[in-house]
Design a protein around this nucleic acid. Structure first.
Length: 805
DNA sequence: GATTAGGCTTCG
């Protein structure tokens, strides 16, 4: 019960109260404080007769005098105290004038009568919702209602002690009464700082009686105002006072005001949002809330569909539920909020140029999410709220205004510095409920938002992945900085994993058994050991991939290339006599000689003319005919670009495409046999003076579809709950930190690859001694004949410390 | 030591 007895004979007050409770003097009371760990001690100076309010509950007013204070004339020495509801019945007889009382968990609000009664400017309010306990402090043991009550926690409040709350339908509201109401929010302004001392929130509610009520609510503590997140929420207000304003009835919060707010979705959770320490919520209340939800959803069209960034149009106002990525003070009257909601705005986004040093937020996140984030400029009275937001917070920004940036040539604006695009403003003022609401993680809108954010990260993993790669590269190049190296090291030790994730670190791991129980497509984080991998011969793990026809081809082996080259220069296959000199062309110079010891073989080299080529052979381009594989290797050490050709037709053309069409910087480039349409060498003339002699440019001119080198491996992963084969497909030197193109021609890189694989999956070692791997994997279906099979692929995962192998 | 706001779009 909330009335308990303390006895002087049991020792001083502080010794009889829980140790965390602190006494607060009347003069130290503050509006904004939530007094849950504080108590006041006072002597009952005046005790008024309890009366019943319009809500049907009893109100009991007392005047307390600070008992231990020096007798003072200060008006801070006496304070009006109001007790509401069931507690009145307990207190009205048990407490006598002159008694000392100890009050806990009271609500502090402004006293409307202070100017008249000369008492404290604040008043104490004790109701069921504040979770108050009143302690009567008796000088001696005496018979009283309270003396029979032993200490018991208030949460064990017996059912018989329930309060009778009555709720007035909104069409029956009368002027001058204090009432309790239920309603559906039709309009609201989230709490904002008024020009006076309090926070203010205005709320318009409606109900099935077709009544409608505008409520103006003040409190020095914004937490005590209703926690409304959107139109359609259901509210329950206790103790609002009805008054007339502009010939209409309006409500203001009365003493003891408390609010519960519920999600307006039928069937949603019935857990209210409130700062009340305790509240009564019966099955009747549940029915009322559910009934209001249903009524509103059928009869009201107030549930605006939520607008995502992907749906915004210029020149509209909307509420955006999003996560704060970064913020920056722009000037004295505006703050930039960088936010995202997981969707991509189809319009060019306005980027507010700010100094990176003034931008608060994780640079990696800012960079990674730049294509998904919107810059919202927040003005004037909202600056304070924006400044107090923590990065990472989920918020609803109410009434964002979108418009296209207009280029004003007379008055240069910020937007001139960057490409114009869609602007997002939160203008000053509170019209239309403009403001920012912080959403807690457990609310349903945040749950949905988080899903959207997560799937955005996973869905566009290719494009985002490239950015992540850039970050990894940047990070490793900066890792000479000791603090970063330390941080990376600590992270690795902590993870105890031979691989690390480049994103999605906040996702929980899923067991392999669970992964295999679910139907594709899905994305997961797993923690497992590599018990096997294929191909064991690492040189077979690099393949050639055609991005056009998606075919995967083996790299032609040396013997095969050598045979093809021999076929190309054998006299039988030559349409043009080998000794017929190819004339010099305008764009190249030709040299021909007989291969040593091989009379029938003539080697021809066409040197492409350019100023640079004459100075630096390493940067020159040559077309070669009649060479062996060995000679190709040797030439590739000397010349920058080598194009093996044949002159079996009247013009110079490429060989069969199993022979590399270009060897550049010792890298062998192949073309797709299905997707290429080789052109005669004359096409290269246009490049001869201008360049650039880049593989992609040469390929395009010669009609060649370039094949890419990729690592393709199959890892068998096991976490104890099960095992699966996951494909590793790496064409961007991500996973190993090694380029698949380079590894083919670089012995040192091949040795490094072997060391990495021996670490990930140590040979001749029991599973216990294998290291753990953190991996992101995705599942997908593959048609195999008439069957659909589930496959898995690794993504956003890299070998930890690959640069150190 | 009483006031704040009392829905109703924008300077940027």
């Amino acid at each position: 019960m909330p009335l308990q007895q303390l006895r002087e004979s049991d020792g001083p007050i502080e010794a009889q109260l829980p140790s965390h409770m602190q006494r607060i003097k009347f003069e130290k009371l503050q509006l904004s404080a939530l007094c849950s760990n504080q108590y006041v001690v006072g002597t009952i100076l005046v005790k008024f007769t309890p009366h019943e309010s319009g809500t049907g509950e009893k109100i009991f007013k007392m005047v307390l005098e600070e008992s231990t204070a020096q007798q003072s004339v200060s008006n801070l020495a006496t304070i009006n105290t109001f007790i509401f509801g069931k507690l009145v019945i307990d207190c009205e007889h048990a407490l006598k004038q002159g008694d000392t009382v100890v009050l806990t968990k009271f609500q502090v609000s402004t006293s409307p009568s202070a100017s008249k009664d000369g008492r404290h400017a604040l008043q104490l309010e004790l109701s069921e919702e504040t979770g108050t306990t009143v302690y009567a402090y008796a000088k001696s043991v005496k018979e009283s209602a309270a003396s029979s009550i032993v200490h018991s926690p208030i949460i064990q409040r017996p059912k018989i002690g329930m309060q009778d709350y009555t709720y007035v339908p909104l069409n029956q509201i009368k002027d001058g009464v204090t009432v309790n109401v239920y309603g559906v929010v039709k309009f609201f302004k989230p709490p904002y700082r008024s020009k006076g001392t309090d926070f203010c929130s205005t709320v318009t509610i409606v109900d099935a009686s077709n009544g409608r009520l505008n409520c103006v609510l003040f409190n020095g503590n914004s937490d005590l105002l209703p926690k409304i997140y959107k139109v359609g929420d259901v509210v329950r207000f206790h103790r609002i006072k009805i008054q007339e304003f502009n010939k209409e009835l309006q409500a203001v919060n009365a003493a003891g005001f408390s609010a519960l707010t519920f999600d307006g979705t039928p069937g949603a959770s019935l857990k209210p949002r409130t700062s009340s320490k305790s509240y009564q919520f019966t099955t009747t209340d549940q029915l009322t809330v559910e009934e209001l939800r249903r009524w509103a959803n059928v009869n009201l069209s107030i549930h605006k569909p939520t607008v995502k960034l992907s749906e915004v149009k210029p020149a509209e106002y909307f509420d955006l539920t999003c996560q704060l990525i970064a913020k920056a003070v722009v000037d004295h009257s505006s703050v930039l909020l960088k936010v995202w909601d997981g969707t991509k705005c189809p319009h060019t986004l306005w980027q507010i140029p700010v100094d990176m040093n003034t931008l608060e937020g994780d640079p990696a996140d800012i960079h990674r999410l730049c294509k998904l984030s919107a810059d919202v400029l927040v003005y004037d009275n909202h600056v304070g709220a924006a400044n107090s937001l923590k990065v990472g917070t989920y918020v609803t920004i109410h009434n964002i205004h979108t418009k296209f940036a207009t280029l004003n040539t007379e008055k240069p604006s910020r937007s001139l510095d960057t490409a114009p695009g869609m602007e997002f403003h939160l203008h000053g003022g509170t019209s239309y409920g403009r403001g920012i609401t912080v959403l807690p993680e457990d609310c349903s809108d945040v749950q949905q938002l988080r899903q959207s954010l997560e799937s955005a990260l996973l869905a566009d993993q290719d494009s985002l992945g490239d950015l992540t790669l850039l970050e990894i590269l940047n990070t490793s190049s900066r890792s000479s900085a000791p603090e970063r190296a330390t941080a990376t090291h600590v992270e690795r030790c902590h993870q105890e994993s031979a691989t690390v994730l480049t994103a999605h670190q906040h996702i929980k791991s899923t067991s392999i058994q669970e992964v295999m129980d679910q139907t594709p497509p899905q994305k997961y984080r797993i923690r497992a050991k590599m018990v096997n991998y294929q191909p064991q011969a690492l040189h077979q793990s690099v393949k050639l991939y055609c991005p056009k026809c998606h075919s995967l081809q083996e790299i032609p082996c040396d013997d095969h290339i050598d045979n093809l080259l021999q076929d190309a220069y054998s006299p039988d296959s030559m349409a043009v006599a080998p000794d017929s000199q190819s004339p010099d062309a305008l764009w190249y110079q030709t040299a021909t000689w007989e291969a040593e010891g091989q009379r029938h073989r003539r080697i021809t080299v066409h040197f492409v003319k350019s100023d640079e080529a004459q100075r630096i052979p390493e940067r020159s381009t040559i077309l070669v005919e009649g060479v062996t594989l060995n000679e190709l290797y040797r030439l590739s050490k000397r010349f920058g670009s080598i194009i093996p050709i044949t002159s079996r037709t009247k013009c110079l053309t490429l060989n069969e495409l199993s022979i590399p069409f270009l060897i550049q910087d010792r890298k062998w480039h192949y073309g797709c046999r299905h997707c290429s349409h080789p052109q005669p060498m004359d096409a290269l003339q246009s490049l001869s003076q201008t360049g650039p002699w880049e593989s992609s440019v040469i390929a395009k001119i010669l009609g060649i579809q370039l094949l890419r080198y990729v690592f393709v491996m199959r890892f068998t992963l096991d976490d104890g709950s099960g095992s699966l084969d996951a494909l590793l497909w790496d064409e961007a030197e991500r996973f190993f930190g090694i380029s698949a193109t380079d590894v083919v021609v670089d012995d040192a890189l091949q040795e490094k690859l072997t060391r990495i694989m021996d670490t990930l999956c140590p040979p001749r070692t029991s599973k216990d001694d294998c290291p753990w791997l953190e991996c992101c994997i995705k599942s997908y279906y593959v048609n195999e004949g008439s069957e659909q099979k589930t496959h898995y692929q690794i993504f956003d995962t890299v070998v930890a410390g690959a640069e150190d192998f």
